[in-house]
Design a binder for these strands. Structure first.
Lengths: 268, 268
DNA sequence: GCGATTTTGTGAATGCCTTCACAAAGGCGT
DNA sequence: ACGCCTTTGTGAAGGCATTCACAAAATCGC
């Protein structure tokens, strides 16, 4: 959240430049984009449960955010709600889908087929959410040539060729830290413009390339910090231990807590 | 990042309560905490390369952030730099380590041993960064009882018992979405106060529990959005297509670009 | 010693995001 | 047809976070 949004600043930086050229029709804030994926998931679940319309209040509850925030987020997409009624699930689903650019079933390359890479290769969530893994790449001789999920693992030396042939713009890097920058450079020179990086290294990329980092150990460390605060020092906050000790950093009064089940049947 | 920092709002909310009660000694901003892990990694790498001191400028470069930000972040920990010289790597490493609460080698439970769970179980990064996986839990009969990485997989019905015995405060949830809330409830009632959630669901927890979510599909969707913006729509902005099309978002003169390699020998 | 030089630590300014609060809009009952 | 009630969409306010820019501190060369 937290965390790995750091590198994305590479993107956030130019926000203003963009708005100079033209407000396009939507210069959606970074924070909003990050939440759209969550809304989309909730909407799809609702749709599958036969829910036809949903209020900002209940969708917000399902997504774990405050309803004002949700409405503002959605307002960047346009005006797809009906006052006094709510949002039509199918319409909103389609809008977010389109906004995120998911209508084109994007081709993704996965580099690195260690434990994590193999898990990612098998992750059903990618396929079901608009992405198609269309290239598996590794450097290890034992892996190259083997078949996995219907694809043949290619050697990293053929990366350029494969990326170009499959017209891949997004790559997932799951190689050891020591190899990550090299792989990244190859990807960039092959034309990849977006990288999801699982290697614990900061990748160095030209400005037109976006990197998002998922750092598993860092996530735990952040939790550790908060945990330390909570249980940790009962020395300084004797009374707060009760109210804050646990609640610590944050609970939105309305938002999170036990989500009001909302009138609409909620999926899970 | 952005991304999954959403649920942490559950945490962020009470921030004020805390500051009311007491500024403690350091009310470190959430954004800073998230970056400390990155600094820590860079520092450890540098330490292993024999670097003794480092300037804010070069450490910032290694971490991919602006040096002013880095200095401000570090200033929340106290004053550990020497003007005109920089920071002593060992001192700073130790400070951050302590601040993040990593000195106690925390016990972590891992629930769910599907592909992803098994990959996580084998992830060396956890052990090397202050965490010890001390319980493996799953519901599948085929897995329960098998040994993995020196641990016997326990049935989820024994979760409460195991968590209490091992005194576990942090859990990693890698079960299917449909099972996540149930597992989460059990964890919370067993006393877990921090959860790292890989299941694509919003978890519902009481205010004293922190949840961080890692949503792989969402990360890709965010990249997809930006990619769409970049190469994407030549339809609406005939002229912007040129300026935005390729260089698009990036092009910021100063910011990210190719990070200056910094004078200090950089690890990787 | 002492000035030149480097680099930290931090007030102040700016900008982004969230939250509040309410007017406008639309359905529904009568 | 008309007012009531619900819920959206959004200006305005407030809070964080980032960035700027510079004074204070400390080393180094002479």
């Amino acid at each position: 959240m937290i965390a790995q949004r750091e590198q994305l600043n590479a993107v956030g930086e130019h926000a203003d430049q963009r708005s100079v050229t033209a407000t396009d029709q939507r210069s959606i804030p970074e924070a909003t984009v990050a939440r759209l994926a969550t809304y989309l998931r909730a909407l799809i679940d609702m749709g599958e449960c036969g829910v036809a319309t949903v209020s900002s209040e209940s969708l917000a509850a399902a997504a774990g955010v405050n309803s004002a925030k949700l409405r503002k987020d959605l307002s960047y997409l346009g005006s797809y709600g009906v006052r006094g009624v709510g949002y039509e699930v199918s319409v909103l689903t389609e809008q977010i889908h389109k906004t995120l650019g998911l209508h084109q079933n994007r081709a993704v390359a996965l580099i690195g087929l260690g434990h994590l890479g193999q898990a990612l290769a098998g992750y059903a969530g990618f396929a079901s959410r608009g992405f198609r893994i269309s290239a598996l790449i590794d450097a290890h001789p034992k892996l190259v040539g083997t078949r996995l999920r219907g694809l043949t693992v290619q050697h990293v030396d053929r990366l350029d060729e494969v990326v170009k042939r499959e017209n891949i713009a997004i790559a997932v890097v799951a190689v050891p830290a020591a190899a990550a920058q090299d792989v990244c450079d190859r990807l960039v020179s092959a034309g990849v413009t977006s990288i999801l990086n699982f290697a614990p290294t900061v990748l160095n990329v030209p400005p037109h390339v976006d990197v998002r980092k998922v750092d598993l150990a860092a996530e735990l460390q952040i939790l550790s910090f908060h945990d330390n605060r909570k249980a940790g020092r009962p020395d300084c906050l004797p009374d707060a231990a009760a109210s804050v000790g646990t609640g610590a950093i944050g609970a939105d009064p309305a938002a999170i807590t036990a989500k009001p089940v909302s009138k609409v049947a909620m999926a899970r």
